[in-house]
Amino acid sequence: MADAATEAVWKILVVDDEPAIHQVTKLALRNFSIEGRASLLISAMSSLDAKEQLERHPDIAVILLDVVMESERAGLDLVKHIREEAKNSLVRIILRTGQPGQAPERSVMVEYDINDYKEKTELTAAKLFTAVMSSVRNFKQIYAMGHSRAGLAAMGHLNRELFAAADKPALAECLLRHFMQLELFKGAALWWGSAQGEPAALQGEALPPENVRARFPQAQATPGLALAVEGYQLLALPHVQELCLLSLQEKALLSEAELDALHLLADNAGAALTRCSL
C-alpha cells in the first residue's frame, strides 16, 4: 500500500451512477488542497467499479458514495464490503443520497459504519467542500496515529452506537466508553448542559477535586482542545450546541500522539452528536 501520509495528492473516490454528479463534484473540489497537497478525484459509476478502484488505490482517503445505483441498496452493500470484507476502517465514507426515503439517516447511521450522511438536495458546493475537508483531515489524523489499535477501537462504530442510544444517559455512557477505550485514563466523568452538580455519567474514580473543577470554565471556552490540570484532561466537545464536558483522569502524562488521538476522538464525537436528535 502506498504511504497515504506522503502521497502527492489526497485521493477522493466519487461513486455515483449520474454523470452530472461527478461533474458537479469535480467543480466543487477544483481548488481543494490541504498542506499543499491537491486532490485527485477518482470516478466510479457503480459499486463494482468502486471495488475495482479501491483495489487499485488502497490509499483512498474519502469516498463520496451514492446509495441507489444498480440496486436500491448498492451503496449500503458497498459500505458492508469495505468495512467487513475488505477490512478498511481507515477510509472516510460520506453517504450522499438523492432519495433519503430509501436510506433514512438514523437507521443508516445505526446499521452502517459511515462517517457522514448528506442529502444531495441540501449539499451545496460550499458544504461539500467543507465535508470533504473535514473528512480528509480526519483521515490524516487517524493515519498519523499509526493505526493505533486503541485509537481505532475508540473511533470504531462511534456514529452507530451514538445513534442507537435511546436517551441522553445512554449517550453519556456511550461517550465515556469510547474515551476509556483509548486506554489512557483511570476514569472519566461527563457533565451535560451544565458543569455544576453531579455528572451525567461516571466511570472509575474520576470525580475531580474542587481545584480542578474550578478550571471547567477555561475548558468550556476552548471546545475540542484538552486542558491539562493536575492529572486530569478537561475537554468540552466541539460542534455541539449544548455543553458536553468531560473530565478524564490520566494514567500518566499524555504524549503528543496520545493528545492527537484524544482530540480526534473528541472531534468525531462532537460531530456525531450534532446528528443525534434526542
Rank of each mutant, 00 (worst) to 15 (best):
D116A: 13
V110K: 12
M109L: 15
I42D: 05
S39C: 15
M109V: 02
P58W: 12
Q102S: 12
A38I: 00
R83A: 10
M45Y: 13
G101K: 07
Q99M: 12
P100A: 07
I42H: 04
L40D: 13
P100D: 06
A50W: 04
E70C: 08
D59P: 01
S47N: 09
M69F: 12
D59H: 14
L95W: 01
L76E: 04
K51I: 09
G75H: 12
V91E: 08
I94G: 00
L41V: 04
P100F: 06
E85K: 11
K51Y: 01
Y117N: 05
R106Q: 10
L78V: 08
H57D: 12
E105K: 14
L65M: 09
E72G: 11
K80M: 06
R92W: 02
L90R: 13
R92Y: 08
I114D: 02
H81V: 09
L64Y: 02
E55N: 12
D116G: 06
L78Y: 11
L41E: 05
A74T: 04
N115K: 01
Y117D: 07
A86C: 00
S43G: 05
M45A: 13
L95S: 01
E105V: 03
S47D: 15
K87P: 00
R73N: 14
P104E: 07
A86D: 12
H81M: 03
R56M: 11
L90E: 09
A86K: 09
A86R: 13
D66V: 10
Y112L: 07
S107P: 00
S46C: 09
Q53E: 15
A103H: 02
L90G: 03
L48W: 03
V67P: 09
H57F: 15
D116Y: 06
D116P: 00
S71P: 02
V91T: 14
D66G: 14
E111G: 00
Q53L: 09
D66I: 11
Q102H: 12
L41A: 05
P104D: 06
D49N: 07
V68A: 15
S43A: 15
S71A: 13
D113N: 11
G75D: 12
R56P: 00
A61R: 10
L90W: 01
I114G: 02
E85M: 04
R56C: 03
R96S: 00
S89I: 05
Y112Q: 02
K87M: 04
V110H: 01
K80D: 15
N88P: 02
P100C: 08
E52P: 00
L76V: 02
L78W: 10
N88F: 03
G75N: 12
K80C: 06
L54I: 13
E55A: 14
K80T: 15
L40F: 07
S43K: 14
R106W: 01
T97L: 07
N88M: 02
A86M: 12
A50I: 06
A74M: 10
E105A: 15
S46F: 10
D49V: 01
T97H: 03
V62M: 10
V79T: 08
P100S: 06
L54Y: 08
E85F: 06
S107Q: 14
T97A: 08
E70S: 09
A50S: 05
P104H: 07
L64N: 02
V108N: 03
D77E: 15
V68Q: 15
D116T: 01
G101I: 05
R83I: 09
V91L: 05
T97Y: 05
K51D: 05
A44E: 04
V79N: 07
S89N: 12
S89W: 11
A86Y: 01
E105I: 03
V67E: 10
I60S: 12
L48F: 11
